[in-house]
Protein backbone atom coordinates (compact mmCIF):
# COMPACT_ATOMS: atom_id res chain seq x y z
CA UNK A 1 0.00 0.00 0.00
CA UNK A 2 2.77 2.37 0.93
CA UNK A 3 4.26 2.31 -2.57
CA UNK A 4 1.16 4.17 -3.72
CA UNK A 5 2.24 7.19 -1.72
CA UNK A 6 6.02 7.23 -1.87
CA UNK A 7 7.29 7.94 -5.36
CA UNK A 8 10.11 5.77 -6.69
CA UNK A 9 13.58 6.87 -5.67
CA UNK A 10 15.51 7.89 -8.75
CA UNK A 11 18.99 9.18 -7.97
CA UNK A 12 19.37 10.98 -11.27
CA UNK A 13 16.04 12.82 -11.04
CA UNK A 14 16.47 13.76 -7.43
CA UNK A 15 20.13 14.70 -7.09
CA UNK A 16 21.66 15.28 -10.54
CA UNK A 17 18.84 16.96 -12.45
CA UNK A 18 18.30 19.92 -10.08
CA UNK A 19 21.93 20.91 -10.30
CA UNK A 20 22.28 20.48 -14.07
CA UNK A 21 19.15 21.19 -16.13
CA UNK A 22 17.20 22.79 -13.31
CA UNK A 23 20.14 24.73 -11.89
CA UNK A 24 18.75 28.19 -12.73
CA UNK A 25 15.70 27.72 -10.48
CA UNK A 26 16.97 25.28 -7.86
CA UNK A 27 19.99 27.35 -6.88
CA UNK A 28 17.63 30.22 -5.94
CA UNK A 29 15.27 27.93 -4.08
CA UNK A 30 18.23 26.53 -2.15
CA UNK A 31 19.63 30.00 -1.39
CA UNK A 32 16.22 31.32 -0.36
CA UNK A 33 15.79 28.37 1.99
CA UNK A 34 19.27 28.89 3.38
CA UNK A 35 18.76 32.59 4.07
CA UNK A 36 15.37 31.99 5.69
CA UNK A 37 16.84 29.30 7.95
CA UNK A 38 19.94 31.34 8.71
CA UNK A 39 18.13 34.56 9.65
CA UNK A 40 15.56 32.68 11.75
CA UNK A 41 18.19 30.46 13.36
CA UNK A 42 20.42 33.36 14.40
CA UNK A 43 17.58 35.31 16.03
CA UNK A 44 16.18 32.05 17.39
CA UNK A 45 19.31 31.42 19.45
CA UNK A 46 18.56 34.50 21.52
CA UNK A 47 14.84 33.70 21.67
CA UNK A 48 15.67 30.28 23.13
CA UNK A 49 18.07 31.76 25.68
CA UNK A 50 15.39 34.15 26.85
CA UNK A 51 12.86 31.31 27.11
CA UNK A 52 10.62 33.17 24.73
CA UNK A 53 10.20 30.42 22.14
CA UNK A 54 6.45 30.55 22.56
CA UNK A 55 6.35 34.33 22.34
CA UNK A 56 8.08 33.82 18.99
CA UNK A 57 5.31 31.39 18.13
CA UNK A 58 2.73 33.97 19.14
CA UNK A 59 4.37 36.73 17.09
CA UNK A 60 4.57 34.54 14.00
CA UNK A 61 0.81 33.96 14.18
CA UNK A 62 0.00 37.54 15.05
CA UNK A 63 1.77 39.06 12.06
CA UNK A 64 -1.06 37.86 9.85
CA UNK A 65 -3.57 40.66 10.57
CA UNK A 66 -0.70 43.18 10.33
CA UNK A 67 0.21 41.95 6.87
CA UNK A 68 -3.45 41.65 5.80
CA UNK A 69 -4.24 45.20 6.98
CA UNK A 70 -1.13 46.52 5.23
CA UNK A 71 -2.39 44.92 2.00
CA UNK A 72 -5.91 46.28 2.44
CA UNK A 73 -4.89 49.81 3.40
CA UNK A 74 -2.04 50.35 1.00
CA UNK A 75 -3.62 48.35 -1.85
CA UNK A 76 -0.15 47.74 -3.19
CA UNK A 77 2.57 45.28 -2.37
CA UNK A 78 4.75 47.97 -0.85
CA UNK A 79 7.49 46.44 1.25
CA UNK A 80 7.70 49.36 3.67
CA UNK A 81 4.00 49.23 4.54
CA UNK A 82 4.12 45.48 5.08
CA UNK A 83 7.20 45.73 7.28
CA UNK A 84 5.59 48.52 9.33
CA UNK A 85 2.41 46.45 9.65
CA UNK A 86 4.40 43.43 10.74
CA UNK A 87 6.54 45.28 13.30
CA UNK A 88 3.53 46.96 14.87
CA UNK A 89 1.61 43.66 15.02
CA UNK A 90 4.63 41.97 16.60
CA UNK A 91 5.17 44.65 19.22
CA UNK A 92 1.43 44.86 19.98
CA UNK A 93 1.38 41.11 20.58
CA UNK A 94 4.25 41.34 23.05
CA UNK A 95 2.68 44.30 24.83
CA UNK A 96 -0.78 42.67 25.05
CA UNK A 97 0.66 39.42 26.41
CA UNK A 98 2.64 41.26 29.08
CA UNK A 99 -0.33 43.50 29.92
CA UNK A 100 -2.74 40.58 30.37
CA UNK A 101 -0.53 38.51 32.62
CA UNK A 102 0.68 41.45 34.65
CA UNK A 103 -2.72 43.02 35.34
CA UNK A 104 -4.89 39.93 35.72
CA UNK A 105 -4.63 36.53 37.31
CA UNK A 106 -4.36 34.83 33.92
CA UNK A 107 -0.95 33.16 33.63
CA UNK A 108 1.61 33.91 30.92
CA UNK A 109 0.99 30.72 28.94
CA UNK A 110 -2.76 31.28 28.72
CA UNK A 111 -2.16 34.95 27.85
CA UNK A 112 0.09 33.90 24.95
CA UNK A 113 -2.53 31.44 23.71
CA UNK A 114 -5.36 33.96 23.89
CA UNK A 115 -3.51 36.82 22.19
CA UNK A 116 -2.05 34.93 19.27
CA UNK A 117 -5.21 32.99 18.50
CA UNK A 118 -7.25 36.20 18.48
CA UNK A 119 -4.81 37.97 16.17
CA UNK A 120 -4.55 34.96 13.89
CA UNK A 121 -8.34 34.56 13.74
CA UNK A 122 -8.77 38.22 12.84
CA UNK A 123 -6.10 37.80 10.15
CA UNK A 124 -7.83 34.79 8.62
CA UNK A 125 -11.19 36.60 8.66
CA UNK A 126 -9.64 39.65 6.96
CA UNK A 127 -8.03 37.48 4.30
CA UNK A 128 -11.19 35.55 3.50
CA UNK A 129 -13.43 38.62 3.53
CA UNK A 130 -11.20 40.91 1.51
CA UNK A 131 -9.83 38.17 -0.74
CA UNK A 132 -9.76 40.57 -3.74
CA UNK A 133 -7.50 43.04 -1.93
CA UNK A 134 -5.21 40.63 -0.18
CA UNK A 135 -2.74 38.85 -2.36
CA UNK A 136 -2.47 35.94 0.04
CA UNK A 137 -4.27 32.68 0.22
CA UNK A 138 -4.89 30.47 3.20
CA UNK A 139 -2.39 27.84 2.04
CA UNK A 140 0.37 30.43 1.87
CA UNK A 141 -0.44 31.44 5.45
CA UNK A 142 -0.20 27.88 6.67
CA UNK A 143 2.88 26.60 4.93
CA UNK A 144 4.16 29.09 2.37
CA UNK A 145 5.79 27.85 -0.81
CA UNK A 146 9.29 28.69 -1.88
CA UNK A 147 8.62 27.20 -5.30
CA UNK A 148 5.94 29.82 -6.03
CA UNK A 149 8.07 32.85 -5.23
CA UNK A 150 8.69 34.86 -8.40
CA UNK A 151 12.35 34.46 -9.28
CA UNK A 152 12.26 36.19 -12.67
CA UNK A 153 12.53 39.79 -11.45
CA UNK A 154 16.19 40.49 -10.87
CA UNK A 155 17.77 43.00 -8.54
CA UNK A 156 20.87 44.72 -9.78
CA UNK A 157 23.32 46.95 -8.03
CA UNK A 158 25.76 49.16 -9.91
CA UNK A 159 25.06 47.22 -13.07
CA UNK A 160 25.82 43.85 -11.48
CA UNK A 161 23.02 41.29 -11.55
CA UNK A 162 22.65 40.15 -7.94
CA UNK A 163 19.81 37.69 -8.33
CA UNK A 164 16.03 37.53 -7.87
CA UNK A 165 14.57 40.30 -5.69
CA UNK A 166 13.08 38.03 -2.95
CA UNK A 167 16.38 36.18 -2.49
CA UNK A 168 18.37 39.41 -2.38
CA UNK A 169 15.91 40.84 0.16
CA UNK A 170 16.18 37.77 2.38
CA UNK A 171 19.96 37.85 2.08
CA UNK A 172 19.87 41.52 3.11
CA UNK A 173 17.80 40.65 6.19
CA UNK A 174 20.25 37.89 7.12
CA UNK A 175 23.22 40.24 6.75
CA UNK A 176 21.52 42.92 8.84
CA UNK A 177 20.77 40.34 11.56
CA UNK A 178 24.42 39.22 11.52
CA UNK A 179 25.61 42.84 11.72
CA UNK A 180 23.27 43.63 14.62
CA UNK A 181 24.41 40.55 16.52
CA UNK A 182 28.04 41.58 15.93
CA UNK A 183 27.45 45.15 17.06
CA UNK A 184 25.39 44.39 20.16
CA UNK A 185 26.76 40.96 21.00
CA UNK A 186 27.79 41.85 24.54
CA UNK A 187 24.52 43.60 25.36
CA UNK A 188 22.42 40.77 23.91
CA UNK A 189 24.43 38.23 25.85
CA UNK A 190 24.06 40.03 29.17
CA UNK A 191 20.37 40.87 28.77
CA UNK A 192 19.63 37.27 27.77
CA UNK A 193 21.31 35.70 30.77
CA UNK A 194 20.92 38.18 33.61
CA UNK A 195 18.50 41.08 33.38
CA UNK A 196 19.45 42.35 36.83
CA UNK A 197 23.15 42.50 35.97
CA UNK A 198 22.36 44.16 32.64
CA UNK A 199 20.33 46.84 34.41
CA UNK A 200 23.10 47.46 36.93
CA UNK A 201 25.58 47.85 34.05
CA UNK A 202 23.38 50.62 32.68
CA UNK A 203 22.07 48.64 29.70
CA UNK A 204 18.52 49.55 28.72
CA UNK A 205 17.04 46.05 28.96
CA UNK A 206 13.61 47.15 27.76
CA UNK A 207 15.13 48.60 24.61
CA UNK A 208 16.89 45.33 23.83
CA UNK A 209 13.78 43.31 24.67
CA UNK A 210 11.52 45.23 22.32
CA UNK A 211 14.32 45.69 19.78
CA UNK A 212 14.74 41.93 19.59
CA UNK A 213 10.98 41.52 19.19
CA UNK A 214 11.01 44.06 16.33
CA UNK A 215 13.91 42.27 14.58
CA UNK A 216 12.10 38.97 15.11
CA UNK A 217 8.97 40.42 13.49
CA UNK A 218 10.98 41.64 10.47
CA UNK A 219 12.67 38.25 10.07
CA UNK A 220 9.37 36.39 10.33
CA UNK A 221 7.59 38.66 7.88
CA UNK A 222 10.38 38.31 5.32
CA UNK A 223 10.30 34.53 5.72
CA UNK A 224 6.48 34.53 5.55
CA UNK A 225 5.96 33.87 1.84
CA UNK A 226 8.53 31.07 1.89
CA UNK A 227 7.47 29.12 4.96
CA UNK A 228 4.18 30.57 6.25
CA UNK A 229 3.21 31.51 9.77
CA UNK A 230 3.60 28.19 11.57
CA UNK A 231 6.58 26.40 10.04
CA UNK A 232 8.66 29.49 10.75
CA UNK A 233 8.63 28.48 14.43
CA UNK A 234 10.57 25.36 13.46
CA UNK A 235 13.11 27.51 11.62
CA UNK A 236 13.44 29.69 14.73
CA UNK A 237 13.87 26.97 17.32
CA UNK A 238 15.37 23.87 15.70
CA UNK A 239 18.81 25.30 14.78
CA UNK A 240 19.43 26.79 18.21
CA UNK A 241 18.02 23.82 20.12
CA UNK A 242 20.00 21.28 18.09
CA UNK A 243 23.17 23.36 18.48
CA UNK A 244 22.58 23.63 22.23
CA UNK A 245 22.76 19.83 22.47
CA UNK A 246 26.28 20.02 21.03
CA UNK A 247 27.73 23.10 22.69
CA UNK A 248 26.88 25.54 25.47
CA UNK A 249 28.97 28.41 24.06
CA UNK A 250 26.90 31.01 22.26
CA UNK A 251 29.42 31.80 19.46
CA UNK A 252 29.61 28.08 18.65
CA UNK A 253 25.84 27.60 18.68
CA UNK A 254 25.46 30.62 16.40
CA UNK A 255 28.01 29.14 13.97
CA UNK A 256 26.37 25.72 14.16
CA UNK A 257 22.99 27.30 13.41
CA UNK A 258 24.39 28.67 10.15
CA UNK A 259 25.83 25.27 9.26
CA UNK A 260 22.53 23.54 10.10
CA UNK A 261 20.70 26.05 7.87
CA UNK A 262 22.72 24.84 4.90
CA UNK A 263 21.85 21.23 5.73
CA UNK A 264 18.13 21.94 6.21
CA UNK A 265 17.90 23.79 2.94
CA UNK A 266 20.01 21.39 0.85
CA UNK A 267 18.49 18.12 2.11
CA UNK A 268 15.02 19.69 2.32
CA UNK A 269 15.03 20.67 -1.35
CA UNK A 270 15.97 17.16 -2.45
CA UNK A 271 13.46 15.56 -0.13
CA UNK A 272 10.74 17.79 -1.53
CA UNK A 273 11.69 16.88 -5.10
CA UNK A 274 11.54 13.20 -4.24
CA UNK A 275 8.26 13.22 -2.34
CA UNK A 276 6.66 15.94 -4.48
CA UNK A 277 5.63 17.92 -1.39
CA UNK A 278 5.96 21.35 0.22
CA UNK A 279 9.60 22.47 0.33
CA UNK A 280 9.20 24.31 3.64
CA UNK A 281 7.55 21.27 5.18
CA UNK A 282 10.39 19.06 3.93
CA UNK A 283 12.96 21.41 5.49
CA UNK A 284 11.17 21.14 8.83
CA UNK A 285 11.12 17.35 8.57
CA UNK A 286 14.88 17.42 7.93
CA UNK A 287 15.35 19.74 10.91
CA UNK A 288 13.32 17.36 13.08
CA UNK A 289 15.28 14.32 11.90
CA UNK A 290 18.64 16.02 12.50
CA UNK A 291 17.50 17.03 15.98
CA UNK A 292 16.37 13.49 16.76
CA UNK A 293 19.67 12.13 15.44
CA UNK A 294 21.75 14.47 17.59
CA UNK A 295 19.51 13.86 20.60
CA UNK A 296 19.91 10.09 20.36
CA UNK A 297 23.42 9.59 18.96
CA UNK A 298 25.44 12.59 20.12
CA UNK A 299 28.76 11.01 21.26
CA UNK A 300 29.13 13.23 24.37
CA UNK A 301 25.66 13.46 25.87
CA UNK A 302 23.31 11.64 23.50
CA UNK A 303 20.44 9.61 24.92
CA UNK A 304 21.95 6.27 23.93
CA UNK A 305 25.35 7.17 25.38
CA UNK A 306 23.61 8.25 28.60
CA UNK A 307 21.63 5.01 28.79
CA UNK A 308 24.83 3.03 28.34
CA UNK A 309 26.45 4.99 31.16
CA UNK A 310 23.55 4.39 33.53
CA UNK A 311 23.65 0.69 32.78
CA UNK A 312 27.39 0.59 33.48
CA UNK A 313 26.89 2.46 36.76
CA UNK A 314 24.05 0.26 37.99
CA UNK A 315 26.20 -2.82 37.35
Amino acid sequence: MIENFIPPFNFNDIFIEPWTYGFESYIWIFLMGFFVNAACGLVGNFIILRRMALVGDAISHSLLPGIALAFILSSSRSTTVIVIGAISAGLLTTIFIEYIYKTSRVKADAAIGIVFSTFFAIGVILITMYADHVDLDADCVLYGEIGFIPFDERASFAGINLGPIPVVRMAGVTIVVLLLINLFYKELLVTSFDVGLANSLGINTNLFHYGLMAVLSVVIVSAFESVGAILVIAMLIFPGATASLISHRLPITLGLSLFLSILYSLIGVHLAIWLNCSIAGAMVVVAGLIFTGVWLFNPTNGLIKKMGLTRKLTK
Binding site: A53, A234, L236, F238, S278, A282
Partner: peptide, 19 residues
Amino acid sequence: KEDSVLGMVLAGFYGVGIV
Protein backbone atom coordinates in the same frame (compact mmCIF):
# COMPACT_ATOMS: atom_id res chain seq x y z
CA LYS B 1 13.70 24.41 28.26
CA GLU B 2 10.02 23.56 28.13
CA ASP B 3 9.02 26.42 25.84
CA SER B 4 11.55 25.44 23.18
CA VAL B 5 10.52 21.79 23.44
CA LEU B 6 6.86 22.70 22.95
CA GLY B 7 7.79 24.89 19.98
CA MET B 8 9.85 22.13 18.39
CA VAL B 9 7.22 19.44 18.80
CA LEU B 10 4.49 21.79 17.60
CA ALA B 11 6.31 22.92 14.47
CA GLY B 12 8.10 19.64 13.76
CA PHE B 13 4.94 17.52 13.81
CA TYR B 14 3.10 20.21 11.90
CA GLY B 15 5.87 20.12 9.26
CA VAL B 16 5.45 16.35 8.87
CA GLY B 17 1.71 16.90 8.56
CA ILE B 18 2.18 19.54 5.86
CA VAL B 19 4.55 17.26 3.92
